[in-house]
Design a protein around this nucleic acid. Structure first.
Lengths: 202, 202
DNA sequence: GTCTATACTCTGATAGAC
DNA sequence: GTCTATCAGAGTATAGAC
């Protein structure tokens, strides 16, 4: 990516990333074309390639800026807080992320579905490290009898799965619910009940 | 697809569908190429196109045969059975499906992620009909006080989400767990605990 | 039924004028 | 910085020999 110096560079770089997110998230890496991205960004294809040297570089720039946002809610789970409330607010933040950034969620889902060809280092690195760290905290909470004993890694998987489902399978969710439903507004109390019941000690 | 008459046609048709499943599920529709599919099937590309007239037709044949398998476990939830045990065995069957047919799960996930361009009729039709039917059963069970009152559609979503996660996000699951883990063997008791706790009446 | 050869289109990327 | 023109390669599909 061109280091933005002028206002016009700043604006075009942003437009390309925004368009790339739109197109990559709904068609996958291979399914997306530079023609589409350029059109959505309101630029010509050669002009797009003036800002980013290749299709790959647009995609990688998107993945890069995605990871931090994605890990942030888990990173903020406070080891000194109340165990169940900490998990519940993690769930809520993750659900809000799905609601507010569904395209980012689908971009990520697409990448993992294909076996994470370009993101594996991040998953085996920062992501795994953060999970390992939080597993220690969850395990302590369970040992102290402050939440039910469940497999802590799978607890984290269940949070990812249940919240991301609303963004990733949006088409199915909305069709099955039918018109006049707000999936996220309904999911919030449902997930609250689910995790509260599951994690209640004893 | 060519109606299989001879033994050789039967064998080649199967090989193409098997190869198509392999390639489409790991690269998506656009990401898959006929060259790859033909190679995996052990045929030349023109020979593949002798059996199926187009790339689309291979993909559609796969989606078609997928839906029934996919809905089967939900269809078998027995309205006359014990509510919580019925839900739990549905969860178990769905998890087994993810374990035994992960490629089918990823094929489905890919299609929905892209907005279900070719599967929307099936989702708005047979799938929604079946869900509506089972929602009636779940609602009755809840009204009879035989399971906790939760949003029944979201209960079904949660089952789909939690079980399919292990197939669709396999790359991430295995990386985060690290070596020496059997994701499905660990998920089974975890999900049993989760749904038992959530659905316990009172 | 299967293969070689090939037509034709799409797509990522570059050259070079302005 | 942006555009027109264009290339090279990949990819779907067809023609026609055997």
């Amino acid at each position: 990516m061109l280091k933005p110096k002028t206002r016009i560079q700043e604006r075009n770089s942003r437009a390309i990333l925004e368009a790339g997110l739109e197109v990559f998230s709904s068609h996958g890496f291979r399914g997306a074309t530079l023609d589409q991205i350029a059109e959505v960004a309101g630029l010509s294809k050669p002009n797009l390639l003036y800002y980013f040297p290749s299709k790959d570089s647009v995609y990688l720039a998107l993945l890069e800026q995605l990871l931090e946002t994605w890990l942030d809610p888990l990173a903020h789970m406070n080891p000194e807080g109340d165990p169940i409330e900490e998990v519940l607010s993690y769930v809520r933040r993750k659900l809000e992320l799905s609601r507010d950034f569904p395209r980012e969620s689908r971009l990520f889902a697409n990448e993992i579905l294909q076996g994470a060809p370009r993101m594996m280092p991040d998953i085996a690195g920062p992501l795994k490290t953060l999970v390992d760290e939080k597993v220690v905290v969850l395990t302590r909470w369970m040992a102290e009898g402050r939440m039910a004993q469940v497999n802590p890694v799978h607890l984290i998987f269940s949070i990812w799965s249940l919240t991301q489902h609303y963004a990733d399978f949006d088409a199915q969710v909305r069709t099955v619910l039918g018109p006049g439903h707000d999936p996220y507004a309904e999911a919030d109390p449902f997930l609250d009940h689910l995790f509260r019941r599951m994690l209640q000690p004893g």
